[in-house]
Every structure is written in structure tokens, then in C-alpha cells.
């Protein structure tokens, strides 16, 4: 795995629907700049096979992403990150990376780390 490789991770026991986990993580990768305009995503079938979930679940996530303008699906090229989708500004992105490293170093769970951010946002 390279440092810039985008991966998905879904938790089947999470209260968040799997398609929503996929959608949110693709959006997060785009915001973080790990997925850029024109980058191809795996096929629905391949992603469903790798995750061991129903293709319909991945298809729903891709539909949501397409309707939000994050990706485009073309018959010949497959699903690609849509033009015009830009990552977050550089400074917040670097701050987020630094915070993620600090959270990992502190042993925070993902939920705890996100709760901290949410709390900080609510205070502003």
C-alpha cells in the first residue's frame, strides 16, 4: 500500500448503512485529495466482491455519489471522479492530517476523534 492509496473500510455491524459508509468515505478521499478528478473507481462488482457485500449496496452508494456530482459513470470508462470536484483547502487538509496522526498516537478510536472535532466545531 502506498501512502496515497485510497481504501474503503466498512463495518457491517455499524449503525450507519454500508452504502452510506462507502459514500462518505469516497467523499472523504476526494476532500483529502487522495482521489482526484478523472481517477477511476473499481467496478461495482469488483468492489462488492472485495468487500463481500451485495452489488446493489455498492450500486446505491455510487448512485448517491453520482447524484451529488462527486463521480460520473460512463459506459466505456466506468466510474470516475467528476471534473470540478476539488479537495479541501490545503491548510485545513494539513491540519486534519496532523490531527489524525495525533489522534492515532493518543490511541483515540475513530468515533472519539470525530466527536472531538464535532465538539470543537460546535464551540465556534
Amino acid at each position: 500500500m502506498t501512502a496515497t492509496e485510497a481504501r474503503l473500510e466498512v463495518d457491517l455491524t455499524s449503525g450507519v448503512p454500508v452504502y452510506e459508509q462507502i459514500r462518505g468515505q469516497v467523499v472523504a478521499h476526494v476532500a483529502a485529495g487522495r482521489l482526484r478528478t478523472g481517477d477511476r473507481l473499481p467496478t461495482i462488482r469488483a468492489l462488492a466482491t472485495d468487500l463481500g457485500i451485495a452489488p446493489g449496496t455498492v450500486a446505491r452508494a455510487f448512485r448517491e455519489l453520482e447524484s451529488a456530482g462527486v463521480v460520473l459513470t460512463r459506459r466505456r470508462t466506468g466510474t470516475v471522479v467528476a471534473p470540478g470536484v476539488v479537495p479541501a483547502d490545503d491548510a485545513p487538509r494539513r491540519a486534519a492530517d496532523a490531527y489524525a496522526r495525533a489522534a492515532r498516537a493518543a490511541g483515540l478510536s475513530d468515533d472519539a476523534a470525530i466527536d472531538l472535532v464535532r465538539g470543537a466545531l460546535m464551540a465556534r
Binding site: T2, A3, R7, G24, S109, D110, I114
Partner: peptide, 27 residues
């Protein structure tokens, strides 16, 4: 990943967490 996993098993090579790994979608 602290959110979903326990500590690395004994004998496993200590390596960095992949940068590209994502967290679960915010609730």
C-alpha cells in the same frame, strides 16, 4: 485501528498505519 480492532498480535511486525486508510463515516 482502535475503532475496530484490538492490539496487534504478538510477533506481528510493528508498522505504520497506512495513510490511505479511512475511518468510518461520521455518524
Amino acid at each position: 485501528g482502535p475503532a475496530v480492532a484490538g492490539p496487534a498480535p504478538v510477533g506481528a511486525p510493528p508498522v505504520d498505519r497506512p495513510v490511505g486508510r479511512t475511518v468510518d463515516a461520521p455518524a
